[in-house]
Computed example of a mutant assay.
Amino acid sequence: MYASRKYLAIAWILVLPALIIRVFTTIYPIIETFRISLYEVKLLQGIREFVGFDNFIQLFQDSKVITSMGFTVIFVVGSMIGHIVLGIALALILNMKFAGQKILRTIVLLPWAMPMVVIAMASKWAFNNDYGLINDFVRWFNPDFNLDWLIHTNTARFAVIAVDLWKDLPFFAILVLAGLQFISAEMYEAAKIDGAGPIRSFISITLPMLSRNILVLSIFFTMWRITSFDIVYAMTSGGPGESTALIAYRVTTEAFTNLNTGYAASIAVVLFLVMALLSWLSMSAAKRVDY
C-alpha cells in the first residue's frame, strides 16, 4: 500500500510540470479571454470599462462580423466537401499499383509541406489578370479571357477555397490512404467472386471501412478550417471589401489593427463555443459509426 502511494506521488511529481505549463498556456488564456470579453477595452483611447454582454450583442449586429461568419461557413463547407470527395479519389489513385508509386506519393505531398503564407502570397500573383499563371493558362484556349479574380466577391471566395483545397488536400488524401492500407485484399477478392464490380466494391467495402477514418479526419480538418487566418491575411486581406474575411481574421483585425481587444475577445469566445459544440457533435457521431 505504501509502495503504491509512493509511486503515485512520484508520478504526480513528474506530471506536475507539464500540468502547470498546460494551465498557463491553455486554461489561463481561455479564462482571461472570457473575462476580457465582458469589458470594453480600447488601448488607443485608454478605455477599460465593464460592459457585461454588450460586446456580444454588438457583434451580432455588426455587418462585418456577420459577413465574416457567412463566408466562414461557405469556406468550411466548400473546402470540406472538396477534401472528402477529391481526397478519397486521390487516395484511391495513390493506392493503385504502378511504377513510380512512391515518387508520386512524395510529389503529391509537396504543397502541404509548404507554408500557407508562401502559397497564399504566390496565389495572389497567380490570380492576377495581367500576368497571373491562372489567366495565362486559360488564354491558351480563350485568348480574349480577362478576369481579375481577387477584386470580385464570388471569384475571390472561390480562389481562397481553391488555394486552401490545393494545399491541404494531399495531406487529407495520404491519411485516407493510410486507412486503405488496413482493408484486406481478401475482402475485395471475395466480392469479385460474388460478382461485385469496382463501383459496388467501393460502395459496399471501401466506404464503410473508411467511414470512421474519414469522419475523424473531417472533424480535425473542419476545426483547422474554422480557425484559418493566414490564407486570407496573405492572399486577399479580407477583400474585396470584407467578403473574404474569415472570422479568425476578424478577431485578429479587431485585436491588433483596431486595438479593440474586448470586442475581439467576445468574437473569439463565440468562435470557441461554436468549435466546442461542433467537436462534441462530431465526437458523438464518431461513436455511432460501427467500422
Score class of each variant (00 low, 15 high):
154 N>Q: 14
155 T>K: 14
152 H>I: 15
198 P>Q: 02
168 D>Y: 15
172 F>Q: 11
161 I>Q: 07
193 I>P: 01
169 L>H: 07
189 E>M: 02
160 V>N: 05
182 F>D: 10
196 A>G: 03
202 F>Y: 08
203 I>K: 15
157 R>F: 07
168 D>L: 12
191 A>L: 02
167 K>P: 00
154 N>F: 06
195 G>P: 02
168 D>N: 15
204 S>E: 11
163 V>M: 11
180 L>G: 05
172 F>M: 13
200 R>I: 10
159 A>M: 01
175 L>Y: 12
206 T>L: 00
185 A>Y: 15
205 I>R: 09
198 P>H: 03
189 E>S: 04
188 Y>E: 08
183 I>T: 05
201 S>M: 14
166 W>C: 03
155 T>C: 15
165 L>M: 10
160 V>G: 00
158 F>Y: 09
201 S>W: 08
191 A>V: 00
193 I>T: 12
178 A>N: 12
177 L>A: 07
173 A>C: 05
206 T>M: 01
190 A>R: 14
159 A>Y: 03
169 L>K: 06
200 R>V: 00
160 V>E: 01
196 A>P: 03
182 F>R: 11
160 V>T: 01
186 E>T: 09
162 A>H: 05
194 D>I: 06
195 G>V: 00
159 A>D: 02
152 H>F: 15
153 T>S: 12
164 D>L: 07
162 A>Q: 07
168 D>A: 12
161 I>G: 06
158 F>L: 08
